[in-house]
Amino acid sequence: MLFGREGQERLDNAHVFIAGAGGLGCPVALYLAAAGIGTITIVDNDFIETTNLNRQVLHYEKDVGRQKVDSVREKLAAFNSQITVHAVSTTIDQANAADLVGDADLIIDALDNFETRYVLNQVAIEKGIPFIHGAISGFDGQATVLIPGKTPCLRCIFPKAPPKVVFPAVGTTPGLIGMIQANETIKYLTGTGELLAGRLLILDGLRGTTDSIEIVRDEACTACRETK
């Protein structure tokens, strides 16, 4: 294996927190389970709808009406019985976010709204936990790795939440971004390769291209300036 026995042991001993069990959360969870991440905590409060099935690949037709986290836990247990999956059905907010994250080694943003992303961004800063951001819209997506004290935080990049625009979600887009997030998770935990730290990867699915742009810390950031 590329990162050897020691790297695999690091994955086995790791605890990853995934916020969201939808289009991004499903491929992230699947590939982290395949990689042998020892403990996965996944949090979501939604129920599965038929319209989710084009992109939320761990949910099947028979699962419509079930809680998403229950579906994910069942699929991951069948896929890799050697890992532990904590499935929590609740809404992440300022009151519970820190407790939900607990002692996780990484926070993975598989959300669809910036309000909750900002809450987890703050938890990541306060706990000193890396935060792997991912977002999609139509054929487009983005991802980056945010490391408290070393890279910009989410509010440095997006001081205010972008306007809410509803686009049809193309199933392949969260698949691609979710796999990138899982890949960055594996790299971080095993100390392999160069992370997307300080860079925002941008996927243009219609052109079939990816680019990355440098991102810098905002000296006046209201979220992370105390960590400078």
Rank of each mutant, 00 (worst) to 15 (best):
N96I: 06
I129P: 07
L24E: 02
L106M: 12
I18E: 06
E219R: 15
T151R: 01
L154W: 00
T227S: 08
D70Q: 08
F79S: 03
P152K: 07
Q181I: 04
L154N: 00
N52H: 12
L2C: 11
A104S: 12
G198S: 04
S212T: 00
E194K: 00
A220K: 14
F158W: 01
K75I: 02
I42C: 09
L176H: 04
I213G: 01
G193Y: 13
C26A: 10
G20Q: 07
G25F: 09
T51R: 14
R199S: 03
I40K: 09
Y118D: 04
S137V: 05
G171S: 15
P159I: 00
H15S: 01
K228V: 07
S71I: 10
A14C: 13
T39P: 01
D140M: 14
L154C: 01
L30P: 05
N96C: 08
K160I: 05
A197N: 06
L111I: 11
N52R: 11
A223S: 03
E61K: 15
A77I: 10
L206Y: 13
A182H: 02
L146E: 02
F158E: 00
R55E: 15
P152A: 05
A77Y: 09
T173C: 07
N52I: 06
Y60M: 14
P148Q: 04
I108L: 15
T222C: 08
R10Q: 12
D70L: 06
A34G: 06
I157S: 01
K164L: 05
Y60C: 13
V165I: 13
R199M: 01
